[in-house]
Design a protein around this nucleic acid. Sequence first.
DNA 1: GCCATATAGTTAGGCGGCTAATTAATTATA
DNA 2: TATAATTAATTAGCCGCCTAACTATATGGC
Lengths: 167, 167
Amino acid sequence: MLQLKDLPDAKVLRKFAERYEDMDSRSVTHFLNILRIGTELAESLDRFLAKHGLLQGRWWVLILLMREDDLTSTPSELAEKAGVSRATMSGLINGLLRDGLVARQEDNEDRRSYSIRLTAAGQDKLDEVMPDYYPRVKKMMNAIPVQQREDLLKQLILLKEQSKVFD
Amino acid sequence: MLQLKDLPDAKVLRKFAERYEDMDSRSVTHFLNILRIGTELAESLDRFLAKHGLLQGRWWVLILLMREDDLTSTPSELAEKAGVSRATMSGLINGLLRDGLVARQEDNEDRRSYSIRLTAAGQDKLDEVMPDYYPRVKKMMNAIPVQQREDLLKQLILLKEQSKVFD
DNA sequence: GCCATATAGTTAGGCGGCTAATTAATTATA
DNA sequence: TATAATTAATTAGCCGCCTAACTATATGGC
């Protein structure tokens, strides 16, 4: 994420453009602004979840479990879908177990493995958060007409594809 | 950051829309995609910096120092501009001191305080990274015509303003 | 001049990431 | 069948972020 609060002003941009010839002020400004706004949106979501005593990592685990027909999954599946390492998922699951939002049940077929199931308390937590979350997302996104949203996303996808320039 | 890799598909969206009436699939999809792409852009930048032995926090400290005419600032100023706590800035500065990229000099007027200065080695590091960074940013952003970039940013700013819905 | 308050920086402790190493069980193969 | 390779999860140790508590110094009434 882009923590940087103090984005470069015209004077700073000139100074850097002088020393580094290939620098294009407009590109840099656009890029930093996009990163900054992404960060701010994510931070808003984090603050919202914090009000419900959740953090992003744990929230996604609960949602991933609720997606399953039997409300059940394995640590490694969860790690992959959530986009974190298995080590991190171990930690997240421990926290959720402590809070009773998920439960653990041994797998009889493979004794290395076990399943994680969303408990009633976990479902209750989602039933508290989601009806608060969805209307807010709807309200926020409705600030932009659907067609323009689609355009916005199309441009962002283009940028994402271009991000291979950093490889 | 949105770590989540496994964005909801149509089936999952239907399931959640059934349980939570106020859920608008399109809004949610758009929102998650925007967060996801922001995260991916930031991750690309991180990987790039890592190739130069830097992480975002330290990189920004060096840049903030180079912006100053005397290449000098204080820990609290740096913390504020970088958007991290003073405690975090203490840690970042320690790392940079260890690597010799910045130096510390006492302030005679206020003995609680001291200044941090970009060293020649720190400037060398920036002179290595920035001429590699700027052309890449330029190349990436040029994938989108300037007018569309401006539109993109305008929409994002609108969204950011709306993110107060989460308060 | 003295005490209360404010400010600069650090330290301690927690959290959520990571990688690498470890343990245990399963699967493949010589 | 014994052993090698693979896989699932955990642990250990690192990092960067946070808040809260602490130390040291400055400042502003009384």
